[in-house]
Design a protein around this nucleic acid. Sequence first.
DNA 1: AATCCGGGGGA
DNA 2: TCCCCAGGATT
Length: 329
Amino acid sequence: MLQQTQMATVLPYYRNFLRCFPSIEALAKAPLHRVLAAWAGLGYYTRAKNMHLAARIVMKKFGGRFPDDWESVLALPGIGRYTAGAVLSIAFGQRYAVVDGNVERVLARLLKIRANLKTSKIQKRLWTVAELLVPAEAPSKFNQGLMEFGALVCLPKNPQCGRCPLTAWCGARRHGIETEIPSPRQRQRTRDIQRLVAVIRDRNDRILLSQRRETTLMRNFWEFPSWEFKRGKPPTSIETRQSTCRLEGALEQIFTIPLKVRGAICTFRHHITFHRIHVQVFEVQLQNEASLRPSIPPGMRWIPKNSLNKFLFDSASLKILESLHDSAG
DNA sequence: AATCCGGGGGA
DNA sequence: TCCCCAGGATT
C-alpha cells in the first residue's frame, strides 16, 4: 500500500484492509472484486491485484507461510527490490537495505549527488551505499529510521539542517547546495484525452453500467458507457455539438436500439498520473419507449438507481454519480 | 536502461 | 499547477 503513496493516506485504508482480510489465508480466499473494493480510492489498483495474487501464491507454494528468503520474496508479484528489502529487514530482521524516495534524497545529499537520481547508474550507487550502511544488528530500526529521517528532517523543500545530526558529514550542506539536491526530475508531458460519457436511463429510471473486462486497466471496475479520444490539445466548450455527434456515432456502433443524446449533464477534468481527461457527460434516452427488453451489449447491466452504491467505481465515475445526485435534487 | 504506469494528497 | 509519495513491471 505504501508504494508511491504517503503514510497518512494509507493508514485508514490499511486498518480497514486488515479488518476485511486479517490473514494471508483470508486475503487469498477472497474474490478479487472484494479486495478491489477495499482498495477503492487508494489508486494504482494493480497493487491490489498483485497483493491478492501474491497471497494465493503464498498459500499454494509456501503453505500459507510468508517466505523469508530474498529470491522467493522478490519473485512475488508486486514486490520489487525495495519491498523485498523492507519485508526481510523489518519483518524478519535480516540485513537488507531499502532505498525509497526518502533514503534516495538523504543519501544524495550526504554524497552530494547532483545528477538525476532515477538513472540506473545512480540507483546502483545509492543501493550499494545503502547496503554498506545497513547494520547486521537491528536493520529494521536502521532502515525505518533512515526513511523517517528523510520524511521528518531531510525534507525535499526545506531540509531542517538546523536540527540535523548529520550536517558534519553532509556534502550538500558543506557546499551550501542542500536545496539543489535532488535535482528536479523531468516531468512526463501531460496528455489530453477526451472522454464522452453516456448516462443512459430506461423507463424505470434504471441506469446502464458496464464493467471493465477486456482491459487490464482498472479491471472489474464499473463505469458509465464511455468512449475516449486522444487529443492534441484540450477540447473547447464550443465543441459540444461535435461531441454530441461523435457520441451518437459511437452509440450506433454498439447498440442495436435507437438512442438519442439529450444534452450535456456536466463537464469536468480528471487527472490520472500524466493524463488530463476532459470528461463530458451526456444524458441519453431510449428512443423506442415500447421496447420492454432493450437489448444491450454484453458486459452491460441495467442498475436501479438506489443500488448504485453496491458497485465499484473509480474516482471519475464517482464524480459523475455525484453530479447525477445534484441534478436530481 | 529507459519508459511507462489510467492515483492521490498537499501546497 | 506543481511536487512528492516507504516503487514495480515492461519493453
